[in-house]
């Protein structure tokens, strides 16, 4: 049986009105998914200082030491029309990006589809699972030292603390993150998607650039002409426009060969 959590109530609209903070939990997302049986838990946030069975993508284990990361799962019940992978992934990534901007004054990058990078190093992973409700699991590195990462063999990982001399506190970061997720979620529910789309586009930073796009096992190259939550449009070398649903795109990144092959 788990130890009863410390409970916070943030003055937010939905997300974070109730936050359960555990010292130690098997997985914040597993608990949130169990609580999805009750729609009354809409907006509930689960935080843990430490996870013993934190989940990464498709059953992989997400490593964490106690007290150095924000390990957060948010339970929401968005209307069916907003349960799009593109929209929900963009919402979570934009929430993390805004939090990093506020805390560090740095614009973080989004690596398609759901990693957050600073200076090309991963600071955050996002895993969203939808069953009876939608559970957004966010693991944000806050206080790890470069030595912590090198011991774990994670050369391309970083924490927010690596980018500021000012000491960071995981609870303060978590509260800021919950407020940003709540703000953006309100916009989403109201159908106001402009800011969310702008944050997503800026985070990816690929519009108008030469990109490589992996679409259902096919590699395509071209200029990224247009993107929204329903289609991504590429102009190929013959000038032809081709659009793809974001859900079919597994990878999208800047084409490093394109610059070199320019005449």
């Amino acid at each position: 049986m788990m130890v009863s959590p410390e409970i916070w109530h943030l003055d937010t609209k939905v997300i974070g009105k109730s936050v359960w903070c555990f010292d130690r939990l098997n997985s914040t997302s597993t608990l949130a998914a169990q609580l999805a049986a009750d729609p009354g838990n809409n907006g509930l946030a689960i935080l843990a200082e430490e996870q013993t069975q934190g989940r990464g993508q498709h059953g992989r284990v997400w490593e964490s030491s106690p007290g150095v990361s924000v390990l957060l799962s948010v339970l929401i019940f968005p209307p069916a029309i907003y349960r799009l992978p593109s929209l929900l992934t963009a919402w979570a990534a934009a929430g993390v990006g805004e939090t990093i901007q506020q805390i560090l004054g740095i614009r973080a990058a989004i690596k398609w589809p759901n990693d957050i990078l600073i200076d090309r190093r991963k600071v955050c992973g996002i895993l969203i699972e939808q069953g009876r409700g939608t559970v957004a699991g966010i693991g944000l590195n806050v206080r790890q030292t470069p030595l912590d990462f090198s011991k774990q063999g994670l050369a391309m990982a970083a924490s927010l603390q690596n980018f500021t001399p000012h000491p960071l506190n995981t609870h303060e970061v978590a509260r800021a993150l919950l407020r940003n997720l709540d703000d953006l979620y309100q916009q989403l529910l109201e159908g106001q998607l402009d800011q969310l789309l702008a944050l997503w586009k800026n985070g990816l930073g690929l519009l108008g650039k030469a990109v490589v796009l992996e679409e259902r096992g096919r590699t395509r190259r071209g200029i990224l002409e247009f993107m929204d939550f329903e289609r991504i449009t590429l102009r190929d070398i013959q000038g032809q426009l081709q659009s793809f649903p974001p859900e079919n795109i597994s990878q999208l990144f800047a084409d490093s060969l394109a610059a070199e092959s320019e005449p």
């Binding site: 993508q57 498709h58 992978p85 593109s86 929900l88 992934t89 589809p113 759901n114 996002i126 895993l127 969203i128 699972e129 939808q130 069953g131 974001p246 859900e247 079919n248 795109i249």
Partner: peptide, 14 residues
């Protein structure tokens, strides 16, 4: 009964 998951953009739908 959950019959499968469909993953798109690393979002898993039961």
């Amino acid at each position: 009964t959950i019959v499968c998951q469909i993953e798109a953009m690393k979002l898993f739908n039961e």
